[in-house]
Write a protein that binds this DNA or RNA. Structure first.
Lengths: 343, 343
DNA sequence: TGTTAGCACTCCATTGGGTCGAGTGCTAAC
DNA sequence: GTTAGCACTCGACCCAATGGAGTGCTAACA
């Protein structure tokens, strides 16, 4: 059987209607809803076909039809294509240009959640090419050193080191020079045992401090790797009865709270360097099992120089894909602009 | 009417039973439950009295009784007194001694949530006496300076400053000396316009850099003030049917997600310098309106030198107060120990 | 051949009555 | 002061009946 234009129109009508109401859609509704001027009987025949083809399904014998995952997929694909064409103006948004990245991201998540009425997440940008830019040791106390490590993109790590013997200014200066001449400009992956042992040798009696600094750098990488994720609007799921029953709600809320599980979404996106577009996971397509009753829309944003993060919107399958996709586009562009402004 | 010993015993029996089952408790149950050897009829009489006195109430005419907020209050007060006396051994806990404070706090929140089956929150310690310990400007790039500000308690703030003209090493050194001699050891509140203008004058052409650093310090205070709160186990509320209906669950989850509202709990506790004990809010006693159907138990922990935070456990009114109070005591002591070890 | 009206049928949601049981208050007896 | 007993109340649960929304199928129509 073939999916002719009329079938597509009917399918779209079913989906749109279901998106609005959340109730199964009957043939009579469609017969009035569309401008096709077909009787409910004809619609019924077409609907039987669509069901056979797997685009819609009946929750039970004498109910209306609801879209299947496959049906949503068709709808979304068509819509995405449309969106891709229209180059939309970026709307004004109320982002206070906070200096602190995490404040900004929290705000973005919240803004999105409030605007869309869905749950949202955003991952902090991950720096891919992590080069050391600058290292500085300073004496804070007689037995405490402060190690400041600045990486490309002005990501800064601090560490307090405890030292047994007090260091004089000259030694400190020497160590600083040693560290900077050897490490500046190096990508983190390039720092190998050879470099380290050489530096230790040069540091002489203070080799343990070099070790400490290296450790601090290593820790910096680690901290960077378990990426920050901010969420908002998890309680929006209560607005959709099909997600609000205790069992499901509990699982979803938990996923949001743990955040750990959300990284799967992010990983999946960031792994693919090329893919910077918008991705839609419907129902079981999602990589996160607990969200199999939801749909997830993700977008990748970029802050120049390989710093990329992911934004996600999580809602019921009957989410307003249209609006969500537009909103995500706008937001990712905004983030882009923000970066340029700050540069 | 007076609350004699027998009434108290019956009240306790009612509460204990209700805590376990979550169902209204009938007279026959109590008659078998306690070792008072009283018939259900007698219990009924006593229960009528207790109801009149406001300690228990009937959800509807022919149901058993459930404790009122006032009833819980009596129970909790009695229990607290008991607990205060027994000096309990600190149990072994699985806290990895992470260096990063926020990891630690997240872990504590989670640990608590898993152990108690309630929702938990913990606020990052707030430093009350914020003294500057050390300031350092370093050149990162031709037009970028890194300002590192270390405060008492090794709280570190970084800021990248953008400068128009390139500074030579000597100027940088001078500025560093200027900043440190004028500001070190000062409490943040003590830095006034007088100090600032004097420093600016001394800095001459570079007075704008001094301004920037002062701004950075000011921002440091601000960031410190809107305190970090970590939460865990919000989805535990679904385990208690009386909290799991959509309306209530949504509100509670929202409160947890926003976190902002939770600060009220913290503020209330931290304002009172003396009060470092455990506080129980039952139902409407809570300062957070959305939690009027819950009980909240909070404890203050101290990491020496005026760094204090708050831990809270949020559950149904029929929470196992006994266990919660013990657990909180253990945890706060543990945090104390942790600090001593690291010192 | 595609479209439509009509009809029988299915199934869910809702409603209302009936029953059951847990629990109460009251009274009278111990 | 305590208890047994009894009538009463009220929510929970079950069940059957009802109604409505929606379907599939068939026959007639353009």
């Amino acid at each position: 059987m073939q999916l002719d234009e009329r079938k597509v129109k009917i399918l779209q009508a079913i989906i749109r209607n279901y998106l609005e109401t959340g109730e199964p859609v009957g043939s009579r509704t469609i017969s009035k809803y569309t401008d096709l001027n077909l009787s409910s009987a004809t619609i019924r025949n077409e609907m039987a076909d669509l069901e056979e083809m797997g685009y819609i399904l009946q929750p039970h014998t004498s109910a209306g039809r609801i879209p299947s995952d496959k049906g949503y997929r068709l709808y979304v694909d068509a819509m995405m294509e449309e969106k891709e064409k229209e180059l939309e103006e970026l709307k004004e948004m109320m982002i206070e240009k906070e200096d602190k990245m995490d404040h900004l991201l929290k705000q973005v998540a919240k803004l999105l959640a409030v605007n869309t009425n869905y749950a949202t997440m955003i991952s902090a940008p991950v720096v891919h090419k992590n080069k050391l830019k600058f290292i500085q040791l300073s004496r804070v106390d007689t037995h405490q050193l402060l190690a400041v490590i600045v990486m490309e993109g002005n990501v800064i790590k601090n560490n307090i080191l405890h030292v047994a013997e007090e260091l004089n200014d000259e030694t400190l200066l020497k160590l600083n020079i040693l560290l900077n001449t050897n490490l500046n400009g190096m990508a983190l992956e390039e720092i190998n045992l050879g470099t380290i042992s050489m530096m230790k040798q040069q540091a002489g009696v203070h080799s343990d401090i070099v070790s400490d600094v290296i450790d601090a750098i290593a820790e910096g990488i680690k901290a960077e790797e378990d990426l920050q994720i901010y969420t908002s609007g998890a309680n929006n799921i209560f607005k959709y009865p099909e997600l609000a029953d205790n069992q499901k709600a509990s699982e979803i809320i938990n996923t949001f709270e743990e955040k750990q599980m959300l990284t799967e979404l992010v990983q999946e996106r960031l792994a693919d360097e090329e893919n910077t577009g918008i991705q839609v996971y419907i129902g079981n397509e999602t990589p996160i099992q607990t969200m199999k009753d939801c749909s997830v829309v993700t977008a990748t944003y970029e802050l120049g120089e390989g710093m990329r993060g992911t934004i996600g919107i999580i809602g019921p399958k009957r989410m307003d894909y249209d609006k969500v996709v537009s909103t995500l586009k706008t937001i990712t562009h905004q983030l882009d602009d923000l970066y340029k402004d700050r540069k």
